[in-house]
Write a protein that binds this DNA or RNA. Structure first.
Length: 131
RNA sequence: ACUACAAACCGGGCUAUCGCCUCGAUUUAUCGGGGAGGAAAGUCUGGACAGCAUAGGGCAAUGUACCGGUGAACAGCCGGGUCUUGUCCCGAUAAAAUCGGGAUGGGAACAGACAGUGCCACAGAAAAUUACAGCCUUCGCCCGCCAAAGCUUUGGCGGAGGUGGGUUUGUUCCGGCAAAGAGGGAAACCUCUUGAGCCGGAAGGGUGAUGGUGAAAAUGUGGGGUAAGAGCCCACGGUUCCGGCAGGUGACUGCCGGGAGGGGUAAACCUUGCAUGCUGAAAUGCCAUGUAUACCAGCGUUGAAGGGCGGCUCGUCCGAUCCUUUCCGGGUAACCGGGGAGGAACGUUGGGUGGGUAGGCAGAAUGAUCCAGUCAGUAAUGGCUGGACAAGAUAAAUGAUAGCCUUAUUCGUUGUUGCUUCCGGGCGGAAUCCGCCGGUGAAGCUUCGGCGGAUAAUACAGAAUCCGGCUUACAGGUUUGUAGUUUCU
RNA sequence: GGUCUCGUAGUACAAUGGAUAGUACGCAAGUCUCCGGAACUUGAUAUCCCAGUUCGAUUCUGGGCGAGACCA
């Protein structure tokens, strides 16, 4: 395991069917202003962890702002997701999840980083609880 | 130098670390190349491209509208015309206001109001071609003055007519009916006359100047003219139509002649000319995946549909059936063979319904392309020559952190330019004052820098098939032009 | 990506180019009542924004902003 901080195409959630399942059956964890919808899936993914990112166009009218928030979330996720990935690999589990920004103001990178850290710790607990 | 306006352009750069998308190379996990905009936005327009439709024409609908050019095309752009408006100057008058001319900016959805229909609140007599009031006149009536014929007792009487003023629909006028009389006719009835009745209506003309309201009131000013008035006539203007001549490709302009004065609104309906077939990349084509052996419909079930493979006009292999009934033949019968009908099952289909699958490739990045030079053109734009290849994502890449540079603002310090005041010196004058020269002098303000620190880099905004334009948003900066103010030469 | 629709009081809706922009519910004050409700009386509150056409714009036209619907 040489590379650690990657986030390429295979590590992003893109399949419509899984996304629909995720939102109809999955569970949620929140740390305002970030909300995470997640679901454990069996042998559907080529990698242990896939993530998607989303911002409501109702809260942010301009595409520039939405793009920026998604970029910030993606960056924070990329830098901090390694422990969760490790845990999933040892447990032989696969997790699909979606990060949604629910705030209404443009955030700073440090805030996003903190909140993503909080969310990651919560997720790690639930993953460890699964036998 | 500053300020304002207009136009054009730019829209931070570099390095390190960690990452993202894509293309290429190979040693298969590394290296190298590329990676948002002037508006990528709004989706307001014009096309390219694709599918479907389509003999031709018309109606409808939508858009558009001065002229010429430009261009693939346009509601764009360029140039011109007309109208309108701001500023300045000149002229008309004593001034203001107004009018005319010129210069220089801005704006115009800028076809038609004489094709037709509608609307124009309130106010006003009236909102579109007409009435009302008013003015003038005719006919009545009343009053004053003058007064002809005639009469006469010579004093006058008389009162046609003229003239001035008043009155303003009545005792007046008009129409119809009844009645009476006369005439005609066989009669019905018709015609004429009369009119203290009844009913109805109020006069005949001229005029459009006056009416002060309104956003808007029928060509402005002056004069003549008339019963009163009026483009009724005249002079100087203005609007508009027609014809001619001249200039211009044309819109249009100038001159001459003749005619007309009947508002506004077409971003009211509408009329005229011109344009448009409809739908949009979620178009469209291909491949893969996938379900049901569902339901409906068609076809087929023994050399047969269909499928697999290959050396693919062919070969080879695989390949979906039973029941009921009836007819014929055979048999004692069970039953056997052949044919028909019905049903079910099975197979199959470029079919329909429903359901399922939902990923990739093409479309789709070399084009009405961009840059430089040059030529033509007032310009938009076009021709030629040379060079360049410049994002291609799809739950949607182009980012995060740190440092430096650069730029802007501000603070401190230091130098410097100019001005003012003070201090001190010299010269001149009769001068407790004034003028001139002038200082490694001081203080204040100011110009331009150097060094250091702090702050900020920020505006509007993110490609989604591609181009032309329009519209809208935009911190800060640069350049050019115009106008104004100040200083110096 | 594309095609459309709509913005009027706090809310739901009206209004032919011409009024002080109307109706209902709601809100506020008063009358009545011991208090409240009901009833009655009175009042406040609005044309999304900017231009244009017109004598005059909620209405017509253009642009902007916002809200909503639809298209495999």
């Amino acid at each position: 395991m040489v590379k650690k901080f990657t986030l390429n195409k295979t590590e992003r959630l893109k399949r419509r069917k899984i996304i629909e399942q995720l939102f109809s059956e999955g569970r949620a964890v929140a740390a305002f202003p970030i909300r995470v919808q997640y679901k454990l899936v069996d042998q559907l993914l080529p990698v242990p962890l896939q993530a998607g990112f989303s911002v409501s166009s109702r809260n942010f009218k301009r595409a520039v702002d939405r793009n920026r928030i998604k970029r910030l979330m993606r960056e924070a996720w990329r830098l901090q997701k390694a422990p969760l990935e490790q845990a999933l690999q040892t447990k032989q589990q696969q997790l699909a999840l979606f990060l949604i920004y629910t705030g209404k103001e443009l955030p700073e990178f440090t805030l996003i980083k903190e909140k993503v850290d909080v969310v990651l710790k919560k997720l790690l607990q639930t993953v460890n609880a699964v036998s």
